[in-house]
Design a binder for these strands. Sequence first.
DNA 1: TTAAATCCTCGCAGAACTGTGGCAAAACTT
DNA 2: AAGTTTTGCCACAGTTCTGCGAGGATTTAA
Lengths: 231, 231
Amino acid sequence: MEKKLIYIADDEINICNIIKSFLLKEGYDAETFNDGRSLFEAYKSRPADMLVIDIMMPEIDGYSLCSMIRQQSSVPIIFVSAKDTDPDKIAGLTLGGDDYLTKPFSPMELIARVKSIFRRIKMDKAHHKNDQKLKVHDLVIDADSKEIILNGRSIGLTGMEFALLHYLAINIGRAVSRSELLDKVWGFENDVETRATDDMIKRIRKKLSEAGSSLVIETVWGFGFKIQNEE
Amino acid sequence: MEKKLIYIADDEINICNIIKSFLLKEGYDAETFNDGRSLFEAYKSRPADMLVIDIMMPEIDGYSLCSMIRQQSSVPIIFVSAKDTDPDKIAGLTLGGDDYLTKPFSPMELIARVKSIFRRIKMDKAHHKNDQKLKVHDLVIDADSKEIILNGRSIGLTGMEFALLHYLAINIGRAVSRSELLDKVWGFENDVETRATDDMIKRIRKKLSEAGSSLVIETVWGFGFKIQNEE
DNA sequence: TTAAATCCTCGCAGAACTGTGGCAAAACTT
DNA sequence: AAGTTTTGCCACAGTTCTGCGAGGATTTAA
């Protein structure tokens, strides 16, 4: 993943530089601007991943900038201002701000809040797509990406191998016969020897153990295969 | 849309009630708890849409509660605490908190922050539908100008190439079959060989690598193509 | 314990699939 | 209309996948 880009706008150059240096130290890319307009122009040509903006600025103030940006983008915005009254904070948050820090503030706290917001976005993204993921023992079976994931790392299964393991996984706890596998995984029009299933199982077992998974595909003697229910 | 449910945990009953009354007035449902354990139990049987929790509580403190909840849920969590030192705030935000308010706080500010977080979640959900500028790895995909931009410079993709890459980008993390691509990118009335997709992919890959992009379009053997989800 | 049935391992070769370069038709420009 | 770009198709080569046979290992049953 590329570095996140964060734009900072404040008319006090020192504040800009302090914030920037802390963000850089945390591994972010950062650009500073001394008024609202220049940040807005920069954002139009190159959108950033987050904005940290002051409220009192020449050209375009923070509130207006926030509103303008919000018309076309959902980029997270953190206000940083010397104005510390409740109405100020409430206005900033209501206009579309994601957070509001009052000066003077601890740079470490700003960093923590930046991270918190990125984490929130990431969680929202992950959760939204998360409907199809199937957890089996130590594996995550992702039908969307057709990947089997162990400890966050994908095990390289071929299409057939994936389809077979997936079928066993959704029928966890039930013994599945070879002929059923041929029907459902290979397709009923396909005529292969029933032993083909054994080959596929063999390969899956090998890859699983090489990858270090604890999942075992049990043989049901004279019948087929099964993944044991957990615990 | 049904009312959002918010759980509040604080050992001071008065605080609970104040927060609850403000939340109710804003149209949320709210339940109060006087220690961490009772909130956790309630959450297990009925998950809420947001948690507002104190740090110093009997049974289970706020930090521990946050960690426990985070193991299974991405529900937003706001800390409300009398502890106002930087390390406290940073700890709370780092452990998985979405915000941190120090007592005494303005109930109106709390409301504004609650709304801000819900708005963020909503924007994240709606994000990939109506955001015109889609970021994928090191590329920016601009649906308006039909341009793919790398480092502020446009890569010269043709219309078909753009449409195909755009479709893969929208479906990032999901393996897309050749036939789906023919349907959605070429249009279902069009009858071309499935290998036409390979040709287009070939050209896109070439242009991407010539432009110096790190984006790779993976082949899903026997199926189609996919852009890997970024970490 | 022994025999029979079944399963696992191994290597291999054919099958299936993909990547590449070239080419020409089609579409678009000038 | 001529030239340029785009795009689909083909053929070939290289890669990956997968079914199969045979022999050894394992389990069941008598």
